[in-house]
């Protein structure tokens, strides 16, 4: 089963994944009209700035066992076994923030949502784009990512690729880190700026 894999070393911090995520979870599904919707659709992936201002795309890991699920007072958080996706049921959610206190990655937000009962503030997080996947589409954040920081692939495949890259990087005469030169340059500039 394919999953979203995050490669933070490639993130440029452009935040297009955030916009795409918000649109994917809007009523209309279109950026232009989504902007006029109330409640305003919000992203479920959060790009933060790291220590040298590099981007860090932070999204739900759908942990197993999931700390948020164990901490939920209302029994609103559940896992879909087939896709291993952790969902929050907006009808059952009581907005108590117990999940926020449990989530080690800080990816749960509290606001009104087009999919929740009108006027109700609920806990909202990544749902692995289950609506898009049902239509045969890849998750919105992956579709829009230009730098390869977000990919949608078999976890085994991703691990093999990563292992191979590490193996190459330690062999004699290795030069490439596997990261495109432009991204590498940008990261180097950011790091250099910090040390100045």
């Amino acid at each position: 089963m394919k999953q979203v894999v995050v490669h933070p070393e490639r993130c440029l911090g452009c935040m297009q994944c955030m916009a795409a995520c918000a649109v994917a979870h809007s009523r209309s599904g279109q950026l232009y009209t989504a902007l006029a919707e109330r409640p305003l659709p919000r992203p479920r992936i959060h790009v933060g700035a790291g220590l040298y201002q590099e981007g860090f795309p932070n999204r739900c890991r759908h942990c197993d066992p999931a700390p948020c699920m164990l901490a939920c007072l209302a029994g609103a958080i559940w896992r879909e076994q087939e896709t291993s996706t952790v969902f929050i049921d907006p009808d059952k959610c009581i907005n108590c923030a117990s999940c926020a206190m449990a989530c080690p990655y800080g990816v749960i937000r509290f606001h009104q949502d087009p999919m929740a009962p009108p006027g109700k503030t609920v806990a909202v997080k990544c749902d692995n784009c289950d609506q898009r996947r049902a239509r045969g589409l890849v998750p919105a954040c992956v579709e829009v990512c230009k730098s390869g920081a977000l990919t949608y692939e078999e976890m085994d495949e991703a691990m093999r690729r990563k292992t191979a890259a590490v193996a190459r990087s330690v062999s004699a005469g290795a030069e490439t880190s596997g990261i495109p030169a432009a991204i590498d340059l940008l990261m180097t500039v950011k790091k250099a700026r910090l040390s100045l």
């Binding site: 700390p67 923030a97 926020a100 080690p104 800080g106």
Partner: peptide, 20 residues
């Protein structure tokens, strides 16, 4: 601004030496 509170919980639980 409590949304990322769980991060601090896990730092405390794991007794992580802060890298910053």
């Amino acid at each position: 601004n409590i949304q990322q509170g769980g991060l601090f919980l896990s730092l405390i639980q794991n007794r992580t030496r802060l890298p910053l």
